[in-house]
């Protein structure tokens, strides 16, 4: 569907595109992290591509893989209705990625959510704070190595619940 755009990106940034694939008409390009911002800027601003609609930005954790994380960006072109997925690999020891909030203000909160859940630092982000969780929260809960039964309550829990009162007597109907 969007093979035309993939070809345009390949021609413009031959060194940046690591891989492309398509699944049922959805095209994906995997780009190098150092070229990510320029590729996205080209996709947005070039008249030939005009991918001007920021649809979604999220993150994926592949605990066994190097690089460990993927930042996944979904774009759409309003005029031609073409869609494109852009992935960029993020290594665990340098868990950072250029921000897109200069291109789309809407990227601000999406990147805050990815930071909140996966700990990816978006370099250049104007306000990189947790967006859903509370500031006291330690760690990044959607990483696969976050223990699934770990809780971080803000008020003390009474786990030693008081003895239960006797059950309700049967009510005459």
């Amino acid at each position: 569907m969007s093979q035309r755009i993939v070809d345009l990106v390949r021609a413009r940034f031959p060194q940046a595109v690591l891989e492309t694939h398509a699944f049922r008409g959805d095209d994906t390009i995997v780009v190098r992290r150092e070229d990510y911002l320029e590729v996205v800027r080209f996709l947005k601003d070039s008249p030939g591509t005009a991918m001007d609609f920021f649809v979604d930005l999220t993150c994926v954790d592949w605990p066994e893989r190097k690089p460990r994380f993927d930042v996944v960006l979904h774009l759409k072109a309003w005029r031609s209705s073409e869609r494109l997925r852009v992935k960029v690999g993020i290594p665990e020891d340098d868990c950072s990625c250029p921000t897109l909030s200069g291109l789309w203000p809407a990227a601000n909160w999406f990147e805050r959510e990815a930071f909140d859940m996966y700990g990816v630092k978006f370099v250049g982000h104007p306000d990189l704070r947790r967006i859903l969780l509370y500031d006291e929260f330690q760690g990044y809960p959607l990483r696969k190595d976050y223990p699934k039964d770990r809780r971080q309550p803000l008020v003390p829990m009474c786990d030693d619940a008081p003895p239960q009162p006797p059950p309700f007597p049967e009510r005459p109907h």
């Binding site: 971080q152 008020v155 829990m157 009474c158 786990d159 008081p162």
Partner: peptide
Amino acid sequence: YDNYSVLQGIDKIIP
């Protein structure tokens, strides 16, 4: 919601 974010019953904090 047996996960990181949800309180596992309000009787953990109030009777």
